[in-house]
Design a protein around this nucleic acid. Structure first.
Lengths: 183, 183
DNA sequence: CATGCTGGAGAACGCACGTTCTCCCCTGCT
DNA sequence: AGCAGGGGAGAACGTGCGTTCTCCAGCATG
């Protein structure tokens, strides 16, 4: 097995375990068991657990925002694109392994201890907010709409993580529709 | 020192340490050092760390909702009471030791591992949402407003926790005002 | 004074886990 | 065949920490 695929398998295992059970309750030995990559190799690829955590968050960030953008951009009407964000949230919340926002959870777990993780979370949230801002601008709507829409989306994510279910997404979409309609 | 004050001092130390640094990174020995309550006594009062964590969350829940209600009820106009919730959030976010919502953070840290903690978080959020619902009803507004207001508040809490600052509260208040105005 | 109880200080224990080390097999080269 | 090197399995090591235990000082009681 070459390095590149070992790295991918390690990250696959890390993502499913870290996201599903939390970071601190997953040991490097669990990663080895789930990935089939030996400890020796794991430590060659990631010199410490924290590096693996960062690589996990980074790869998930790219994929998460990619999936969102891909979904949203199937919608040609620029104003409806904004609401499509909430449709996508609803789909996400409904996935069987959904367990909340990985960054919010990681921040609760490690934000106070690891400045690197805290900064990755801030960067992810900044990127998401900027993306919303670009959709608002693309629809010709006032920039002041971005903040409220962002807060609705964050509230939906944290609530869906805690209580489960897709209802937070539909509530957020209706509120977003109302805000957009009110200009 | 009698049991009751030892218990209070232990909980004071637990609250400031757990909230400020996260639960898992605070050891029982740190609690002892900060509270002056010996390990032996700590374990008499709380048979395991998890009990202390639960007592911390429970006492904080009572106090947090008490402070909120006290602030809100100073406002006589029932519609303005709803906005007062966001004013109070702004004050809270501005406190020097503010580090996000204790329950959201605890959920990220322990939600996947401790069903007791997860249930306490859900109960706290349910109580907060029910309180918002009572304000909405008290103002004679449609119940459908509760969900969006709740999501705005949650989004503001999580965002203020991650990025710091009071701006999420003002953004949420403006959005709330707009939703209330639109009926 | 002797005796027994309470509670504090902190050592000790056990375990989990991040990280490193040892041993050995396998493979490819000469 | 002989051998060097990479990689796997898993033991070993060090540390942190939850929990318990030991020891002793202080104090109330006969």
């Amino acid at each position: 097995m070459d390095s590149a695929t070992a790295r991918e398998q390690a990250l696959d295992a890390a993502e499913s375990l870290f996201y599903g059970r939390g970071i601190q309750s997953v040991g490097m030995d669990d990663i080895r068991g789930a990935s089939g990559v030996s400890l020796k190799r794991l430590y060659q690829l990631f010199p410490a657990k924290e590096h693996l955590v960062e690589a996990y968050l980074e790869r998930r960030d790219v994929r998460w925002r990619g999936r969102l953008a891909e979904y949203v951009e199937r919608q040609p009407d620029p104003e409806r694109r904004i609401l499509a964000v909430f449709d996508w949230l609803e789909e996400w919340f409904g996935e069987a392994d959904f367990r909340g926002c990985a960054w919010i959870n990681s921040y609760g777990e490690l934000g106070a201890r690891s400045e690197r993780v805290a900064e990755q979370v801030r960067a992810h949230k900044r990127a998401f907010r900027d993306y919303l801002a670009s959709l608002v601008a693309g629809a010709g709507l006032p920039d002041a709409l971005t903040g409220p829409l962002y807060l609705l989306a964050e509230g939906a994510m944290v609530t869906a993580g805690i209580t489960g279910g897709t209802r937070p997404a539909t509530e957020a979409r209706e509120a977003a529709r109302s805000l957009v309609a009110a200009r």
